[in-house]
Design a protein around this nucleic acid. Structure first.
Lengths: 257, 257
DNA sequence: CATTTTAATTCAATCGATCGTATTAGTTTG
DNA sequence: CAAACTAATACGATCGATTGAATTAAAATG
């Protein structure tokens, strides 16, 4: 009864034109893409795109800091400069917004590490142990920049780690890109060491990722211990140097440069 | 007016007789300690100790999983088998309970890694690089057990990681024990490598801790990637083997066993 | 030893505030 | 105008916290 009116009004449950086919290797641009140039047919300029984007950005921050249950939709709307009803209008529910944030994070990560991933997936570049090692090192350096570099990644990390500790439906979305990265990295390491992609190799890859990850998830401890106020370019280069040096030590004697 | 009655009744804001002098290296027993034998003066038996302990245990779990803001005091009280009002009665507020949990975690960690820390701090055992290496390896193995070992430690870890990503007053409490561990580990590594405790050495120690930490903060990813359903004894031993092997590779050629 | 007193603790009921969501009227735009 | 979108308000549920009475057991008293 009371449903009919609502059903007529809202385009919800088809979360947005933000949807892409299936993403994959494509590299989306930073800004929300315009639908077309302007055949002004049904394609009215998506006025709500900006609101959606701001809601997602605000939600990413609030969900990451406070957690899903604790996060208040009013706070998210306020930070996004949007109306409270906009959340339900654009996404359908708080939970759907949470999922949209996960998809956004997955997309942004794909954008950030996509080039390095694509390069590493090139069979030609990974034919020899030396080539694989160079690709792997580059991949890890990229991860250093992404994971502890950008302020944006700080928000991603909070959101993702929360999902790790209490996985929800959003974990599935995140896993697609994360799992692929780990899988690719494992293949590279297997080539470098000349060993199969067995349990040991997979675990070793995780420990290498952990060497970067620690600077993100234990950052409060790191900053205090190191006497740093922030991890800037200098600190990042130093971390890169240490970690790549460790990789050389761990994956066998370093080849000539 | 309405205050006088309340003021008379509650012992709050002096959180409990649970308070110890300053803890430190002492190893508290599991059960709440009796005040004295019984000079039956003012020392009545602390009936509320058990309720407090159960509230802290329940709060540790709920805070760790849901986060501070999202956690419901009703849920905590329910899990503790206590009344909702017991939280305010024993701790004063939800936030004070959060701090009490942090202190509890710090105490329990001190108990768990205390022996390994004390052994590692013994000057005699760390006089030679080989001795220092053995101590460091033992320390890391202890951390594997603590961080990804017991079910209890799993709850600690969730709580601590949350504090790292969004430090609150509880971070200060946790840092006391964590910072000391990192400092000691750095000293050991410096002895092993024969290098000073400079920035590089400190960073290297973090990367080694990261190799363990990753199995906690990215556990959902690890489980799915490895095809595990949980990290049990077998998986833990495998992780220990990998990480200690890495330590040998990283800190210089392994000495004879 | 029996009783009363007293403080510590637990309990159910309840408060105002805020939560996510629903509803409806109004505004903007092609 | 019709569709897309925002603003404002309402609603039932749940939040952390408060209250005052009931319960408990040690201490004081006779």
């Amino acid at each position: 009864m009371a449903r009919s009116a609502a059903a007529r009004k809202k385009p919800v449950s088809e979360p947005a034109p933000r949807k892409r086919d299936d993403a994959g290797g494509a590299i989306p641009t930073e800004k929300p893409p315009r639908p077309f140039s302007s055949p002004y047919k049904r394609a009215r300029r998506d006025r709500g795109a900006e609101t959606r984007a701001q809601l997602i950005e605000a939600a990413l921050d609030v969900f990451g800091r406070i957690g899903f249950e604790g996060a208040a939709t009013r706070e998210i709307a306020k930070r996004a400069g949007a109306n409270l009803a906009a959340i339900v209008y654009h996404f359908g529910s708080k939970e759907a917004l949470h999922l949209a944030v996960a998809e956004h994070v997955a997309e942004r990560i794909a954008t950030s590490v996509g080039p390095a991933l694509a390069a590493a997936a090139d069979p030609a570049a990974t034919a020899t142990p030396d080539g694989a090692r160079r690709m792997f090192t580059r991949l890890i350096e990229t991860y250093v920049e992404v994971i502890i570099g950008s302020a944006e990644a700080e928000r991603w990390a909070r959101f993702i780690v929360r999902e790790q500790m209490q996985p929800s439906g959003a974990f599935e979305v995140i896993y697609r890109i994360m799992g692929g990265s780990v899988e690719l990295a494992t293949r590279l390491v297997a080539v470098v060491t000349g060993r199969p992609e067995d349990e040991e190799t997979r675990l070793r890859v995780f420990t290498i990722f952990g060497q970067v990850l620690v600077f993100r998830v234990a950052q409060a401890l790191v900053l205090r211990r190191m006497g740093w106020t922030a991890i800037g370019q200098r600190e990042r280069e130093e971390i890169k140097r240490i970690v790549t040096g460790h990789i050389d030590l761990l994956l066998g004697g370093k080849a000539k440069p």
